[in-house]
Nucleic acid binder design. Structure first.
Lengths: 206, 206
DNA sequence: AATGAAACATGATATTTATCATGTTTTGGT
DNA sequence: ACCAAAACATGATAAATATCATGTTTCATT
């Protein structure tokens, strides 16, 4: 089975696949971080999800019904990804019920996350969504360090803006406020979460 | 297998299950329309999805990992739903790879929809999101009728507001504008889409 | 037909966030 | 160390939407 997997490498600026491309493969992140992006004709972008090592992507419906990718996948820095031909993936799931159950579980979790995000976008303010994002990243990507939790992903204010549905300027202003309030420090290259519980409180403030 | 399914009926004001309840069953809508809702402590609501006959719900991760419902399910009017104990569901999927693949496909589609919604909330204006909702409902729920496409679900301005992340007042104002522009007519009890392509154009306007 | 509740409507105002413009700092590559 | 590009910063203004208040219409029930 495993011989069906091939490995590829990508760097900054590459596309793993583009929105609208036909779905040919099923993917797994091996190393690095991948972002799933949707964009509009006029150049606006929305980042749906950051994928970490071990995450599946493109294991969804488009792999089955022959349609095309609903969004693009881009590396955040250097990444390696594993790929399986969609037919092999399909056969593997048929033969291996446990794997199918794992995929169901994974997709169920992704769906839950997406719904949580929908709720945040619908009901929360910009600063709460940004705080929520930082809490999330600190938990998933942070390494403890003197001076706070350091994020291992390089994340510009623009990246953050795209992830929570605001403009770059608004992200910069809010991050400035967070910095003044001692919640965060640093910029993209070395971003620190200094007060995680403060951010948590903000994220869930009524 | 089918004997594992039990049928229940619900009416206006009932809850099929509430956010936070332990997940015990896997559900299918048999008749009527069900809404999936998330709410905040201070009474705000966000409707994630309207489920129609044939739709599965609660087939997701919470059924597997023993956690609780991430949102509530409420009927829009009278509904009947089919239910299967989660253990039976689990076993059924193990024994029946085709069923598991169907669930993967279904979840993949739900995920795609959720991501589309995320993009809309992040990048589109209120009137575009509302137009988009109406187009969607007309396609899924509409019956052609002299005077336009009539929606078979009773939908108040408040319901619409909760579905696209705006306030009731804003929904009323935008619907008023749509009515003046001849795009829609009527209110909750008899809501007509008079100009589907006009709404489509609005929904995807840059 | 009467009536209370829900739904719809609309105005005035406040708040949030986007937009546009411009300047400074940091970063990566030679 | 230098330089261009990217990232960060900030102000002024505009636009979108929420909030609050109040009134009208429609609906379901008796």
């Amino acid at each position: 089975m495993l011989q069906e997997l091939t490995e590829s490498h990508y760097g900054k600026g590459d596309f793993i696949f583009r929105e609208g491309d036909p779905t040919e493969y099923f993917h797994i992140v091996k190393e690095g971080t991948v972002k799933c992006v949707k964009s509009t004709p006029d150049g606006k972008e929305c980042t749906l999800k950051m994928l970490m090592p071990g995450d599946l992507f493109c294991c969804d419906a488009s792999a089955f019904d022959g349609t095309s990718h609903p969004g693009s996948a881009q590396p955040m820095g250097d990444v390696s990804i594993l790929r399986m031909n969609k037919k092999a993936y399909f056969d593997m799931l048929r033969r291996n019920p446990d794997a199918a159950l794992e995929v169901i579980k994974f997709l169920g979790n992704r769906l839950k996350e997406a719904q949580e995000k929908t709720k945040d976008l619908a009901l929360d303010r910009a600063d709460q969504r940004l705080a929520s994002l930082l809490v999330d990243l600190a938990t998933r990507n942070g390494i403890t360090d003197p001076g706070g939790i350091r994020l291992t992903v390089r994340l510009t204010r623009q990246d953050m803006a795209n992830m929570v549905g605001i403009t770059t300027e608004t992200a910069i202003r809010i991050m400035g406020r967070f910095k003044r309030d001692g919640l965060v420090s640093g910029t993209a290259n070395r971003l620190f979460i200094c007060n995680l519980s403060g951010l948590k409180a903000l994220a869930s403030a009524s």
